[in-house]
């Protein structure tokens, strides 16, 4: 934690560094893979598409870059950006450094939805195309249920809502466990793979599905930055300063849950991004959500694409689940963040 608010120079430096990370991530996403194609040739091909120069890529190489690597990279950017900004927003609105949308039932709801879809298809089928739809529905049902249980009472506090989220998650998880226990070993394996999260099935179609959600929801979250700074003095004081706390909470919890549900339904459960990205950004630029949220969008996007690059290269030709990579990188980073914060406060 910074001892004092950061200087403008420091913030600028961080913005430059994070943007550079994004550029590196985009290049890694397009260039690294079993077929080696150089950055210059990919760049040349990209320029030739807008009428500058001409491409030196074969049609196979072009397909690899633009139909496999590019959509996967773009989906990674979108997922990372959304998960990170949603986590940061949750931490602000609940004033709890460990909050993220998974906490209010998004993860458990999506898990149940996907499991329902997967165990109900015949053994030879892969994950059915309508699994994302059910996962999305499950996530939204779970969050709505949490909101109804925890947010309805007059004296509802952020803690009530989080407890309701824990209860709803437990209910959905047990239903999912029951379903899995009733189904075949093969579908259990498929459910498991889905739960660990992956960008392997990315296509321009899946990008098209999530783009509107990610744009609308992350813009809403970023716009809430100033309001979340006001929230840092607590509900009562924020209201006395003129903030409509109930409407704000409904709006930003709605936006970040919806965006996260859309992402989870396509890429599965990728953990840790929503927790560690905003924390790293906070460590670098201080506690104002006006800075944390937009920078989390950029850094989250870069982070997830870099993790995915690791996921698809370290054990090539097979892939590590992306959720495993984010956890392996995320857990130690989180420990470091905690100890830095402790040093900052002592």
């Amino acid at each position: 934690m910074l001892a004092s608010p950061p200087s403008a120079r420091r913030v600028l430096l961080v913005v430059v560094a994070i943007t550079a990370a994004l550029v590196v991530a985009v290049i890694c996403g397009l260039v690294i893979g079993p077929t080696s194609i150089s950055t210059q040739r990919i760049l040349g091909d990209a320029l030739s598409r807008v009428g500058i120069g001409h491409s030196t890529l074969t049609s196979t190489q072009s397909t690899i870059v633009w139909q496999y690597r590019a959509p996967r990279m773009v989906l990674g950017l979108l997922a990372g950006a959304m998960l990170a900004v949603a986590g940061g927003t949750y931490q602000g609105i609940f004033r709890n450094p460990l909050a993220d949308p998974y906490l209010l039932g998004v993860a458990a709801g999506a898990g149940l939805g996907a499991t329902l879809a997967i165990v109900n298809v015949s053994n030879n089928a892969a994950v059915p195309t309508w699994a994302p739809l059910l996962a999305f529905a499950g996530a939204m049902v779970a969050v709505t249920l949490t909101w109804i249980i925890g947010g309805r009472s007059m004296k509802s506090t952020p803690a009530t809502l989080i407890l309701a989220g824990v209860a709803v998650s437990a209910l959905f998880t047990s239903a999912q466990t029951f379903l899995q226990q009733q189904s075949s070993t093969q579908s259990i394996a498929r459910v498991y793979i889905w739960l660990l999260g992956s960008l392997a099935s990315a296509s321009w179609h899946s990008v098209d599905i999530v783009v509107p959600y990610v744009i609308v929801c992350s813009v809403l979250c970023v716009l809430a930055g100033r309001a979340l700074d006001v929230m840092s003095v607590g509900d009562d004081e924020a209201r006395s300063l003129g903030l409509s706390v109930r409407s704000l909470r409904l709006l930003v919890v709605g936006a970040s849950s919806l965006g996260t549900a859309a992402i989870v339904s396509v890429v599965g459960l990728i953990g840790f991004v929503g927790i560690i990205v905003p924390h790293i950004v906070r460590l670098l630029v201080g506690t104002s959500y006006r800075r944390i949220l937009p920078l989390s969008v950029i850094f989250g996007a870069a982070f997830l694409v870099l993790c995915d690059t690791v996921a698809r290269t370290v054990m090539a030709p097979s892939e590590l689940p992306l959720g495993v990579v984010t956890a392996v990188i995320g857990a130690p980073v989180f420990v470091v963040i905690l100890s830095v914060r402790r040093m900052g406060t002592s």
Partner: peptide, 27 residues
Amino acid sequence: LNERRRARLVAYVPQHPEIPAGMSVEE
């Protein structure tokens, strides 16, 4: 009145105000 109009009429100082770390006095 909504919160915003109320905030223009009356200011409130609680017994134990929450002081957010990392925010400057001016902010």
